[in-house]
Amino acid sequence: MTYKIPVYDINNEHSLSQTPNFNNKNALMKTDMVYQCEITNIVELTESEKLFQLKIINPIEAKIFSFLPGQFVMVEVPGFGEIPVSISGSTSRRGSVALCIRKVGKVTGILHKLKKGTMLGIRGPFGTHFPMKQMKGSNILLIAGGLGIAPLRAPIYWINEHRSDFENVHILYGVKTPEQILFDFQFDSWRKIYNYDIHVIVENSDKSWQGKTGLITDLFKDISIDVKNTYAIVCGPPAMFKFVCDYLNKQGLAMNQMFISLERRMHCGMGKCCRCMVGSTFTCVDGPVMDFWTVMNLKEAI
């Protein structure tokens, strides 16, 4: 006779012994196990932004890890914390992850102290993506405010790699001051090789600035949009995307042809911690990429 409750050892579950695949959401897996990565390169973009190139060390993990433009990863700096960062590199370079990180808090502060060769962890990819395949055959309008250019780099690489799938591509980019402009070293190649139409505007210019001064919406005068056959990808602060999308909507661009990437501070990436909830929607699972119609129907999105 025994009254002992039998032990259930979850470690015996077969799927738990497998390498986690975050694209396989419904599987039981070690959701908190990171892929170890080495920092293979660091590019100092501005005083407060750096571009980190990571390489997933384990070949199995490198093979499993695949993402689509707009998705994000949780970046783990052991001992300091984990932060969500949208991937700003090409989807086709397996095992390689590019992240543009601004120094704003504890974890990003430490990240900015790290040197090439340091080990980090990532989990992911998480969240929704820009529907690049659905956009095939259309004109693309990429609109970024400030650090919003970072998530746009993933769709830009996608377009570059599938350039014949798309018609005209415009980039409208607004920043506060000229020294905050990111990735301008790539603008020439995007223009020349991939035939992009790129417009940059700064809010507060200085003597060195030769370009335009004003708000991002001022750039609309410089381009013509075929509203029937255009998709917009917008990334930036809430006030900015609201202005931009309202304007485009008035021009006749349908709300479901505009895609926005929302920014929230996820703590898990898996719809569990509730920190990134906007109204009743998890930004980490149902976002961060959403069409403008969905965003406008969310309470507290803006």
Partner: peptide, 16 residues
């Protein structure tokens, strides 16, 4: 749901 939480499952299934 998506991303089942192993810590929770282990506790749930070991609690009578």
């Amino acid at each position: 749901g998506s991303f089942p939480h192993p810590y929770y499952i282990a506790r749930r299934k070991n609690t009578f």
